[in-house]
Every structure is written in structure tokens, then in C-alpha cells.
């Protein structure tokens, strides 16, 4: 079939089908190339734009790579002490119940120093969304072993691999909170492939809609990569994640509301 349309004819404003959302700022993210943080930020921003809740959303970013989130998302963001994001989000949501409140935490934050805050916020059924980025490592501080590090996985503080006899077992936070009566919707997703990004986006949107209906805590784990911490190329780290992280942290819903 003859096809003589030039690229210039396609690249016109009226043909635009996808561009970065205006809820993301123009700042270049501080994340390493290929890091799932950037993708997750973007899909949260896209949902905020689609739902038209830019001025009604408050994010809480604690300590970790996500600490600079306020530079990249054009919404209200409150900083929290290490691990304390669910406690801060509890206060914000109780004082401003009409706002959409979410926390954005890594595994070194949520599953280590913030374990107590996370479990109690979920157990109280605080009406917030917790987004949990799990890459099995302390990314920001140099790739140290985290509670979520897999058995045998190498990190800068477990150079011969995590020895379970000495260092304990990896912690499945999402499975734990799914057993608590306060949680309403608990799911585990990823953002390494287009299909997974779309599924994660749907899950986050659902969670924010549940929040509007005052249903309780929604908890979304995003199994992600850490190319720098894992010492891998970005694409290689995604393949490694599929092969090693997903068998231990299987993707899918852990708790869905009864319709």
C-alpha cells in the first residue's frame, strides 16, 4: 500500500496522543536511569490530572530516594521523618478529611524504621493510600541490605548474599497488612513493562476512588528495580527482577473489596 505521509504531517498538536502530564514539573528527576520511581511518580501525576484533584491532593514523602518528590510533582507535599509518613498522613487526613492523602515510601523506609507506623496506620484503617516501592535494597544510601532483601541477594552490607540464618528472612509487608482488618484494598504491582504500568495506574486510581468513599487504608506495593544498587544495566535489572523478585513477591491483588 502506498504510504507517503511524512513524519512532519504526523507530528502536529492535533495528533498528540501522549505527552508528559502537567502535574509533573519540568525538573529532571534525580533518579538513576531506568529507575521505577520516575514511572510511578508519572502515573500518580497522570491519575491526579485525570481525576482533576491537583489542588485537593496531599502527598507525604519520607526519607529515601523519594525524599525530593516535591521537586517533581506539582501538588502539596509534606516531608516526614524517616518511616513516619503514615503517621503524618493520618494527621493530615483527620484534619482535612476532604483531601486525597497518600504516602510514597520505599522499602528501607516503610519496612524497616517505619514498620510500626505502617502496621498501626493500616490496623486503624486510616483513610489514606500508601504507595510502597519495594526494590529490596536501601537505594539512596548506597545499596545496603534492607528487610526486604531476598535470600542470597548481594548488597553492600551482605556482599556474599543474605544469609537467612544470620540476617533473618525477607519481610513481606504487603502480605502482613493484607491480614489487618483496617485495610480495604491491597495489591502488588510493577512498572517495568507497559502492561504492568497500565495495571499499576488502574490500581492507584481505584485506591483514590475508594478513599473518596472513606473505605479505609489502601496499600499498593510496586515491586521495582534499583539498577545502581543492584549494579546492573536498567534493562538487565528489570529482567533480574522478573526472575528473582517476582517469585518471592508475586504480582496481583492480595485483598480486594467484596463487591
Amino acid at each position: 500500500m502506498a504510504d507517503n505521509i511524512s513524519i512532519e504531517e504526523i507530528i502536529k498538536p492535533e495528533n498528540l496522543v501522549y505527552a508528559k502530564t502537567g502535574v509533573m514539573t519540568d525538573n529532571i528527576t534525580s533518579y538513576c536511569p531506568g529507575c521505577g520511581h520516575g514511572t510511578t511518580h508519572r502515573i500518580i501525576a497522570e491519575i491526579i490530572e485525570e481525576m482533576g484533584i491537583q489542588s485537593e491532593t496531599i502527598g507525604v514523602a519520607p526519607v529515601g530516594c523519594s525524599v525530593l518528590m516535591y521537586n517533581f510533582m506539582d501538588i502539596d507535599i509534606q516531608q516526614a521523618a524517616h518511616g513516619r509518613a503514615p503517621a503524618v498522613a493520618t494527621a493530615i487526613k483527620r484534619l482535612l478529611p476532604e483531601k486525597f492523602v497518600f504516602t510514597y515510601q520505599g522499602d528501607g523506609d516503610l519496612a524497616a524504621i517505619g514498620t510500626a507506623e505502617t502496621i498501626h496506620a493500616c490496623n486503624r484503617g486510616e483513610n489514606i493510600l500508601i504507595v510502597f516501592i519495594n526494590n529490596g535494597i536501601y537505594g539512596m544510601t548506597g545499596g545496603q541490605m534492607a528487610p526486604t532483601t531476598l535470600e542470597g541477594m548481594k548488597s553492600s552490607t551482605s556482599p556474599y548474599g543474605r544469609d537467612v540464618a544470620m540476617m533473618g528472612n525477607p519481610l513481606k509487608m504487603t502480605d502482613i497488612v493484607a491480614t489487618l482488618p483496617g485495610t480495604y484494598y491491597v495489591t502488588r504491582q510493577s512498572v517495568h513493562k507497559p502492561g504492568n504500568v497500565r495495571k499499576s495506574k488502574k490500581a492507584i486510581r481505584k485506591a483514590l476512588e475508594y478513599q473518596k468513599l472513606n473505605k479505609g487504608t489502601c496499600f499498593i506495593e510496586i515491586v521495582s528495580n534499583c539498577p545502581s544498587g543492584w549494579k546492573m544495566e536498567p534493562v538487565e535489572s528489570n529482567e533480574w527482577m522478573e526472575k528473582n523478585m517476582f517469585p518471592f513477591y508475586p504480582l496481583g491483588d492480595l485483598k480486594v473489596p467484596a463487591e
Binding site: 505527552a19 508528559k20 502530564t21 528527576t29 533518579y31 536511569p33 508519572r42 512498572v191 507497559p194
Partner: peptide, 27 residues
Amino acid sequence: NHDACTGCTNCAVVCPDGVISVYRIKN
């Protein structure tokens, strides 16, 4: 490989830095 592009947006959806814009037309 310009001619093969169908404007499916997969590249833009998965881009961690949101640097890709996608255009599409029906010929």
C-alpha cells in the same frame, strides 16, 4: 525505524522520565 511506528504509546508509558511524546493518525 519511523515507518514501523503505530503510535501505540508503549514507549512513553514505560519511560521513567516522561520524555517521550506520541503522535498518531489514521491514514
